[in-house]
């Protein structure tokens, strides 16, 4: 049972509303600068990319670097224009992705 990414999207919104979307994902975000018990550097393993699409079109994205904390929390605003589905995707250094989706109805 892995830890699921958490997203908070309003289920409904009025057309033209400014909505706040919050995301929280669990990841150790190993910087690559830390030394392990054997004195060798622990290889870097961070989420380096975050992408959000709405009905297939990109609405938000971020490149992440080693200074981002473990379990990164990212929030952003957007204007609600129409109903649809958000897809959230995080990619880590090994190319593995985590994703989740959420629906929003605009009236």
């Amino acid at each position: 049972m892995a830890k699921k990414p958490r997203v908070k999207v309003p289920k409904t919104a009025a057309k033209g509303d400014m909505i706040n979307i919050k995301t929280l994902v669990s990841h150790k975000m190993e910087t690559g600068n830390r030394k392990g018990k054997d004195g060798k550097k622990v290889p870097r393993m961070i989420l380096n990319n975050f992408k959000v699409t709405f009905n297939g079109a990109a609405v938000f994205g971020a490149d992440m670097h080693p200074a981002v904390s473990a379990n990164p929390y990212i929030a952003f605003f957007m204007k609600a224009e129409k109903s649809g589905t958000f897809n959230f995707t995080w990619t880590d250094d090994s190319g593995k992705t985590m994703s989740t989706s959420a629906d929003m109805a605009v009236s």
Binding site: M1, K3, P5, R6, K22, L24, S26, N71, Y73
Partner: peptide
Amino acid sequence: ENPGMPYVDQ
């Protein structure tokens, strides 16, 4: 926002 919550969810 509580970063302990993903563990609780799991």
